[in-house]
Design a protein around this nucleic acid. Structure first.
Length: 635
RNA sequence: GCCGAAGUGGCUCAGUGGUAGAGCAAUUCACUCGUAAUGAAUAGGUCGUGAGUUCGAUCCUCACCUUCGGCUCCA
């Protein structure tokens, strides 16, 4: 169907056309807003131009939809946007797509590109738009149209026989898309409108580039990144494992993983002590009554492991803690407090239990039992800004030391008033107050952040520090939260300087986040070669012959005495093999010793990434190691 | 929880409706070796678990468990 055949109002036809500044003939049917953005960007049609890239991928998603419609005419269209890396399109189909289906679709997409079909925009009034989608048999599109506000221009894009409801923008022809620069990556289920109550559609993910070589490069890079998958590397390098009959989300931290977490948590606890925190140790479980006060019973019960019958009020019922907050508050409540006691900074290396749903677990990143560097700061309202900033400073200090700062970004996680009562406790006024307080602090820091609506904790807004794993999936590493609700619920009060009772504010925060998750991120960041200061094994001594085993032991003994983690490989193997294995295990330093070294009291030093760095006296190596470890360099 | 894929010795993977192989790792022996794999021998698996179909199941069917990629959820 041509646009003209369905009463296209010609007036809207060329709305917002931009002609290429390079006069290459490419036309963008951009709405004014995006046109302005485009013109500010590099005036080239390259992927360095974010708008062009997204437009290209968006048009790819339409080509994908067109291919699906050709090969699977019964498929109903969902939505198909460009995303961070590539594009996807959701379809309602009888059977999920198979790998062969994706191959066939890729071929068909290539054909559509070669057909060089003009991509044209037209607009329709609501009733005609609905009629068109009804004729095309697209119930999901009709739902989208019905959700559009009154008076909105309802625009469509057409290429050949394919018409799609779409706000645009798009390229002007399928011929602009490189026919062999497209790769369909995967397909999986995805709920319509992202709501698990809705029907599950089938989503196809894809990526595309204007050059085949760029596609190949991207795919190779991705493959390379996947090699650092902590879930693979972490198991291979024996940081952790899982056991069928223990259960999902309950990893075993093997000696190497446990060692790293011990090193990190000692560092964190010491640093927090320096910053005025008091360490607590609170129980792993409590009676249901505690969680009723905190609100967990009403807002978080599905996320808890409950011991006993939660509905039988005549018997005791316990729950493993999903958070430490209500426990640490008891420290404050232990006696009468005055304004002089505040801020009260309570930290705990706390193990938590959350009954995540079965499909949500992922290596060390998403588990059911984990340990976080948690703290609650009980403060006077006038201390909020200073304490919040100090929390952020601490978090950033940790991230910088770990070398992860560049991989993280901020998210201001707000509530959604729509879910008041169900998901969130407190009043709109209380939420406004907490969110605007956080807003003010963030503004004063001139922080670059994205906003997450409906991402808050049930008791308050959060500043989350996010990262992406090797698959590009986003997770929270660190969080800082403002809570103006729970202190009141627990009857926490302090006497101010006028002798009047006041309710404190509370900051919930993590400093390094969840140790398991942080370890996962470190493994992915460093490809398993963790910085020397936190490496589970820092030095391995490799004697060349049995004659120098005693010397090797001496060297190791001195280093152990100084607190380093060192082993001796005294097997009867060739040194080449010992080196190979130490390399594969990513041991930072190898000390190769033979008769010559023994004679002179020297060591031959090999670094895992620098290779052979020469022979030196033992003391010189010790000094080198000391400098690296004490500075917590990322080497 | 939902959609899809997978599960064979410690690891990576072959394989077949007639109850299993390879490489690496392990163990033993020999070699005493100079910056990424010395050689030989030995041992190791009720083929994720449980049912069913069949004369016979690791293979076919179903359920469950676990793992992986998504969705939803979340530190």
């Amino acid at each position: 169907m041509r646009a003209a055949e369905c009463n296209v109002p010609q007036a809207g036809w060329n709305r917002g056309v931009v002609t290429s500044p390079l006069n290459s003939g490419v036309k963008f049917f951009y709405p004014q807003k995006e046109r302005d953005l485009f013109m500010k960007e590099k005036s080239e049609y390259s992927f360095e131009n974010e708008v062009y890239k997204k437009t290209y991928w968006h048009s790819c998603s339409h080509v994908l939809a067109q291919a699906v419609k050709r090969l699977f005419p019964e498929a109903k269209l969902g939505i198909g946007p460009a995303i961070e890396a590539g594009f996807y399109y959701d379809f309602d189909v009888e059977k999920p797509f198979t790998g062969e289906d994706l191959d066939a679709l890729e071929v068909e997409m290539g054909k559509i590109c070669k057909e060089k079909l003009p991509i044209e925009r037209f607009e329709l009034p609501r009733d005609e738009a609905l009629q068109l989608m009804e004729e095309k048999g697209e119930p999901y599109k009709m739902e989208l149209i019905n959700d559009l506000p009154e008076g909105e221009h309802i625009s469509f894009y057409q290429q050949g026989e394919f018409v799609d409801l779409c706000a645009g923008p798009h390229l002007d022809s399928t011929g602009r898309i490189k026919h062999n620069g497209i790769k369909l990556l995967s397909s999986s289920g995805a709920y319509w409108h992202g709501d698990s109550k809705n029907k599950m559609l089938q989503r196809i993910y894809g990526i595309a580039f204007p050059k085949k070589s760029e596609l190949d490069e991207w795919l190779a890079k991705r493959e390379e990144a996947l090699k650092n998958d902590h879930n693979k590397l972490g198991r291979e390098l024996e940081y952790f494992t899982t056991v069928d009959y223990i259960g999902q989300g309950l990893p075993i931290l093997l000696p190497k993983g446990a060692r790293v977490i011990q090193i990190l948590s000692r560092w964190v606890e010491d640093e927090e002590q320096r910053r005025g925190y008091h360490l607590t140790k609170t129980p792993y479980m409590a009676k249901r009554e505690l969680y009723k006060i905190s609100g967990h019973w009403d807002h978080y019960r599905d996320g808890m492991f409950i011991i006993g019958d939660p509905d039988d009020e005549t018997k005791e019922c316990y729950a493993l803690r999903p958070m430490t907050c209500p426990f640490q508050y008891q420290v404050f409540l232990n006696r009468k407090r005055s304004y002089k006691d505040l801020p009260m900074r309570l930290n705990e290396t706390s193990t938590l239990f959350r009954n995540e749903e079965s499909g949500e677990m992922h290596g060390l990143i998403r588990v059911r039992q984990f340990t976080i560097s948690e703290a609650h700061l009980i403060i006077r309202p006038d201390q909020l800004e200073e304490e919040f900033k100090a929390c952020l400073e601490l978090a950033n200090f940790m991230l910088e030391t770990l070398g992860l700062k560049e991989d993280c970004y901020y998210q201001f996680s707000k509530w959604d008033p729509e879910n008041k009562g169900k998901k969130y406790q407190g009043t709109a006024e209380q939420w406004d107050k907490a969110e605007s307080a956080m807003q003010m602090i963030l503004d004063s820091l001139d922080l670059d952040y994205k906003v997450g609506i409906d991402e808050a904790a049930f008791y308050g807004p959060k500043l989350d520090i996010q990262f992406r794993n090797v698959f590009g999936k986003e997770d929270t590493l660190i969080t800082i939260q403002i809570d103006m609700l729970l202190a009141e619920q627990f009857g926490m009060q302090y006497t101010d300087s006028n002798g009047e009772m006041q309710t404190p504010y509370i900051i919930h925060r993590t400093s390094i986040g969840c140790y398991e998750r942080t370890l996962a991120l470190l493994i992915e960041k460093y490809g398993g070669a963790l910085p020397t200061w936190m490496a589970p094994e820092q030095v391995r001594v490799l004697p060349i012959t049995d004659r120098v085993h005693d010397y090797a032991e001496d060297i190791a003994g001195v280093l152990k005495e100084k607190g380093y983690r060192v082993t001796v490989d005294d097997r009867s193997e060739k040194v080449g093999k010992k080196i190979r294995e130490a390399q594969l295990e990513k041991i930072p330093f190898m000390l190769i010793v033979g008769d010559k070294e023994k004679e002179n009291g020297h060591v031959s030093v090999r670094h895992r990434s620098k290779g052979d760095i020469g022979v030196m006296p033992q003391e010189e190596f010790q000094e080198k190691l000391r400098a690296i470890v004490e500075s917590k360099s990322t080497e």
